[in-house]
């Protein structure tokens, strides 16, 4: 079902943070695959390492964090240890990224159209007229009405949803092969969130760009992703097609996450929760890291690390997955 050589293949990725005198692994052996044109969701709580995993692909990790081992093979090249110059080129052209806060990615003193124009002229052999026409096309694609007029607007003159659209237009203007979307709708209102999700869906359909979509809301992921990877305490604990994760989740954490999503239904009474907190990144982990919060945990879970259960297209790291 998956092509032999995916667009992105992450193998055994470890990312560590300096805590006092020693390096602590925050991401502890992540394997991830994204095929060309595929939309993969990465879900987890804050501190699960999902954002770090995403940031490690274009190698824009925050200060104090480093990739300690593993391979990130993108389009046939291992990005880990790639010379800075080659990496910069990739970053500008093949891998694009959008963030939760578009203001950090947009220059406040330059009109948005100009920012897209400059980026296009730097990265591509494209003429003045062609670039302008393409910008108009892109802005229309991300759902901005009257793109010609909007091009002259400064970022602060746009609403949050509009900025997110502009940032996406800027990100896809270089015809990237992979778009990394790090919680792009978390700061937005529900109605605007629905629009932005619709826009991302349209972009992947019309431009055929693969998307790595990071969110803490599984329902949102299900709306546009083909596959989903659930992360907990720096590891992928379950990974499968969206349909089978929803229909038959194998990991108790996934089951509990699904239960927690506030839904519009007739239920009343206490909201379902996952008790406790995820482990701190500097704590020592013995056995299954989810065991202290798991209502199905047995002694085995608390003492020894769970095996990986596999089925074609489905993977779960749990003693009781089978």
């Amino acid at each position: 079902m998956m092509p032999a050589d995916p667009l992105l293949r992450i193998d055994g990725l470890h990312i560590s943070f300096k805590a006092g005198q020693q390096w602590r692994d925050v991401v502890r052996g992540v394997d991830l695959r994204v095929a060309a044109g595929e939309v993969v969701g990465l879900v987890g709580e804050s501190g699960s390492g999902k954002s770090l995993t995403a940031l490690s692909i274009p190698q824009v990790l925050p200060p104090g964090a480093r990739i300690s081992s593993g391979r990130i093979v993108f389009d046939g090249t291992d990005l880990v240890g790639l010379p800075r110059k080659a990496m910069n080129e990739r970053r500008g052209r093949d891998i694009a990224m959008i963030f939760q806060d578009p203001l950090t990615a947009l220059n406040p003193v330059i009109p948005v159209g100009r920012q897209i124009y400059d980026s296009m002229r730097t990265h591509q052999a494209i003429g003045h007229k062609a670039a302008l026409a393409r910008i108009e096309e892109l802005l229309a694609l991300v759902g901005i009405r009257h793109p010609r007029e909007r091009m002259r607007a400064y970022p602060h003159e746009l609403s949050g949803g509009m900025r997110q659209r502009v940032m996406t237009a800027l990100a896809v203007s270089s015809n990237p092969k992979l778009l990394i979307a790090d919680e792009p709708t978390t700061a937005l209102d529900v109605t605007v969130q629905a629009q932005v999700i619709g826009m991302l869906d349209r972009i992947r359909r019309e431009l055929g760009i693969a998307v790595l979509f990071i969110s803490h809301n599984l329902d949102l992921i299900a709306e546009i992703c083909d596959r989903v990877c659930v992360m907990y305490a720096g590891k992928v604990v379950e990974s499968s097609s969206v349909e089978s994760v929803f229909a038959a989740p194998r990991h108790p954490y996934t089951r509990q996450l699904l239960r927690c999503i506030p839904r519009l239904d007739a239920d009343t009474g206490p909201m379902p929760t996952i008790p406790g907190l995820p482990p701190r990144f500097d704590s020592d982990l013995v056995g299954c890291p989810f065991a202290p919060r798991c209502d199905e945990a047995s002694d085995r879970c608390r003492t020894s690390e769970p095996p990986t259960w596999r089925e074609p297209g489905h993977l779960a790291v749990c003693w009781d997955a089978a």
Partner: peptide, 8 residues
């Protein structure tokens, strides 16, 4: 002032 608190 990183390394304190939670890494996100």
């Amino acid at each position: 002032s990183t390394t304190m608190g939670y890494a996100t």
